[in-house]
Design a protein around this nucleic acid. Sequence first.
DNA 1: CTGTTAGCGCTTTCAA
DNA 2: TTGAAAGCGCTAACAG
Lengths: 331, 331
Amino acid sequence: MRRTVRLRDVAAAAGVDASVVSRVLSGDARLSIRPETRERVLEAATRLDYRPNTAARTLKTARTMAIGMIVPDLANVNYATIAQGAEEAAGTAGYTLLVAHGSAADRLPDLHGRIDGLLIGMATSETPRHGEFGGGVPALLVNRREPCGIPSVTVDDEAGGTLATQYLISLGHRRIAHVAGPQNADTARRRLRGYASALATAGVELGPEWVAESSFDEAGGHAAAGRLLRLEPRPTALFVANVRAAIGAMAAARRLGLRIPEDVSIVGFHDAPFAAFLDPPLTTVRMPLAEMGRQAADNLLALLRREPIEDLMVAIPPELVVRGSATAPAR
Amino acid sequence: MRRTVRLRDVAAAAGVDASVVSRVLSGDARLSIRPETRERVLEAATRLDYRPNTAARTLKTARTMAIGMIVPDLANVNYATIAQGAEEAAGTAGYTLLVAHGSAADRLPDLHGRIDGLLIGMATSETPRHGEFGGGVPALLVNRREPCGIPSVTVDDEAGGTLATQYLISLGHRRIAHVAGPQNADTARRRLRGYASALATAGVELGPEWVAESSFDEAGGHAAAGRLLRLEPRPTALFVANVRAAIGAMAAARRLGLRIPEDVSIVGFHDAPFAAFLDPPLTTVRMPLAEMGRQAADNLLALLRREPIEDLMVAIPPELVVRGSATAPAR
DNA sequence: CTGTTAGCGCTTTCAA
DNA sequence: TTGAAAGCGCTAACAG
């Protein structure tokens, strides 16, 4: 069992001082060194398979070179996509992305000292108070904007809501109901706003009973859609603010004996690998989540450099993925 | 902006030496100290909101008090469940679980120095060579057993395969085909073995054409089931080795104009939140994944204590979740 | 162009 | 019952 290789071991092997090795390996620009010396150092480092001690380096520099991301639900495809983008951007900047599962309040203590900054994905049920996460590392909210003093990166949920609704309108629908997300989440509120503004633009007037609030999951979508589909006159189309809720909505429609899309069209929000294999395949709105992750990481890194940060909305527009769950209304 | 609180600051505030504070706060048993002194130390620590410097502690003790888990697919519900169990067990032992996304080979360098041990979830397409992950931290394979010199924790996939198949047999099926997982993954092989042994026990003889290999995703299940359902005589039931593939299989059946479960019964493997909302709701076999995560973390921690570790299979038996996708065959 | 030096904040052995 | 001292492995300012 060989002892772990230290900087000084490399230095000894190369016949130089440890500080020289340090400067060579960290690519210090302001270092002038004889090419052959550098060569010897590099050779010794690779030969001995030197790996810098992270703790020592962190202790000295006061930087971990890692950023954390807290996700409320590890199994959520959306967070996975966001994380992938974030990891890419972090990696490019030489940082590692560490993911933890839970709420920021719960996991922050665990992460303390292991990360330089934090990307916070919040559960839709959380409503943070102002300044709640101030104590500790620089933080950035991902996919949610909250008045808690933390800057955010989001996507254009309103445009997504408008896109979905406009599509249904263009198909000829007028009685379009909305399975809205939990209204304490601003993403859900913005999607609702997009829905409402698309209707307004088209001159369609619908009362508040055409919107049913739901959690972002199957059971919620099932319940909310069940209520909506009992309205008289019945909606010919549903815009559902989430893929998982959309699955629940489809189940609710079937349970009422309604065919999709003949009797009721359904458009979802966000995409998932299984959406194309549902019966019928789900038409949905795809948001630039990976890009949001990338920009979130970039912005967090800027924050670490103490650059001024604003709330940011990813400029890439949402995309309509047309599959089989929406068609023109029967007449 | 207050400077960060050091051990010595607490010591100064309490009027003792830093080493005393260290021993008090880390609960050193072999320390005899006057109750009032201890009180003063504790009070000073809380008052100043002292947080130990992780890097300094790690540098000194050579332990990070964190374990890592690498998952090939962050969005996979199964890994999420496993991670939840692992996190729970790690937390109980005072460790933090850090999740990284990708392959062990890719992410190990990033994690070096940040964790004391590693839980490896492998992508089903990977086939590691012997000793591949030896260089670095102690590691443990989760949900997969491979001859690469790393101990593993798995669930009883064979029993799961048997359970699913026996259920179909008990329903009266004899022509039961199997959408098997990728055969380079031992989980998939064990499920196939369970299927085969259940058939053998029941005295049902079926040729190899009744098994179609598939990737663990919707498209794979769709293709494999499509092939199987064109067999003559047609299978009356399908045991699909994965939930996602089961969704694909359902789509394939529908495309052939077959009703589920009237024309063909389908039983899946693993569960997912959406499974209950499919059309029809998916009958499936649920494995003790959270428990596997727990035991994996416990075993890894034992490994860190240099205790001898064996390959382990979680003793909890799989559970059949009966929903609507399987029924007696038409006669 | 290269070496010396002084810590970063903590734990732990030893001494008082 | 408490304090002193050494050192984990690294970096960065300064000296030569």
